[in-house]
Design a protein around this nucleic acid. Structure first.
Lengths: 223, 223
DNA sequence: TCATCAATAATCCATTTGGATAGTTTTTTT
DNA sequence: AAAAAAACTATCCAAATGGATTATTGATGA
């Protein structure tokens, strides 16, 4: 049985999709969430071997959207595969989802059987499921890099987490191993303020300690 | 009828593929070539509306290989679609073929029916045909840009700090943002022991806090 | 003008971490 | 078998971190 998670703000979508998958005896839909925050919350409560192996993620959601959720989730739980399942196919969304760590991108148009097939294939072979039209767009992105968005030389990624300039500055210092006091000294502000910024950064990254934050910073190229 | 070209140095391959496609009444295989030079020569001799709309291109060929041929051909005849059809799936070939202007990349493993389906789809919808495992590799290329790899630096740096296996293990957890307690749980040892290991790691790395340690771990590739 | 937001600063409190020190057990090497 | 190294456990204490809350300032925008 492949453990599946479904994240979609429309309850009906979740039910239909879960039904489709459950009809196939290979899938065990055991996590449903209406937005990213709820998803991360539920992941936290699960033990390692109870967590879904594949998570189907809608992109347009209130509170915490799919891309930020994938970015955070793929750092926190690297063993989990995230597959975007959405009706949108614009370049920015595709690109950001991939950068965030999605290993597949399916359009909701695809039929239930195809989705099931593709997920089984992902689980067995590790091949990323990608709708043909999406794959074509990705090719085009490589052929015509949309204004320096392709990080082919390890460039900075988009501001996924909406950090302010000051926050990025402080995150960079944090990543160098500086303590609050030292950062305060460098920036000529008080250590209390540094701490406040750090807490705000944690909020935006949806983490609650330095280790996690640095992990995301390093793996998501936030520096 | 979709006009098809086949470029492959093995005559047998051409015959088998042409047969497969001709069985389907949608295809009109009207150009065969054994290498890039021959292909370009024949293209030159054809009138505009006689040229193939889709060209299936092998990569490994004598005289003029597939990538150079695609690069040249896509400049000379932008209206023609080039689909790579090969047994090779290494990153460099894929990337170069796409950069050269290929609009699809199929592995020869795919069955004749699938190839036919995919070509029809390409012709009708413009969606690029890509084998799933290729698509996955492309994703990974975007996620992990091919950075300049240092040949021996990896191995050297692992020995540089003389970390024991256990210490490396704990450092990896630390880099994932886990706290002492959580690491202790994962390793079934006490948090005190974890702390002791961490202190020993700091000693070896000549640092005195988590930030510094993670910085070295990430930048010196200790993971 | 009023509302909002980013940056600044501070306080209180609980938890985590870093450092020193002192052991025991297990494994490896000599 | 003895010695050495690695792994494990523990306690004390000081420092750093995290979380919540409150408040001021300046810039931006409706």
């Amino acid at each position: 049985m492949i453990r599946i998670g479904i994240v979609d703000d429309k309850k009906n979508n979740r039910i239909i999709l879960a039904d489709k998958l459950r009809r196939n005896n290979l899938f065990d839909v055991r996590l449903e969430a209406a937005n990213g925050e709820q998803f991360l919350q539920k992941m936290m409560e699960l033990k390692f071997d109870e967590r879904p192996e594949i998570v189907l993620m809608d992109l347009e959601m209130p509170i915490m959207d799919g891309i930020v959720t994938i970015a955070t989730g793929s750092s926190l739980y690297p063993g989990v595969r995230y597959v975007v399942l959405t009706i949108f196919d614009d370049d920015d969304r595709i690109f950001n989802a991939i950068k965030a760590g999605a290993c597949g991108y399916l359009l909701k148009e695809e039929s239930g059987e195809i989705i099931a097939d593709i997920l089984v294939n992902l689980w067995k072979n590790g091949a990323g499921p990608i709708s043909p039209s999406i794959a074509y767009k990705i090719l085009q992105m490589i052929q015509n890099p949309p204004t320096a968005k392709l990080p082919l030389a390890g460039q900075k990624s988009e501001n996924l987490f909406q950090l302010s300039e000051r926050e990025k500055e402080i995150l960079r210092f944090l990543c160098q191993g500086l303590e609050y006091k030292e950062i305060a000294l460098k920036l000529s502000i008080s250590a209390n303020t540094v701490k406040k910024h750090v807490i705000n950064i944690y909020d935006k990254l949806h983490v609650n300690n330095k280790g996690h934050a640095l992990h995301i910073a390093y793996t998501k190229n936030l520096l």
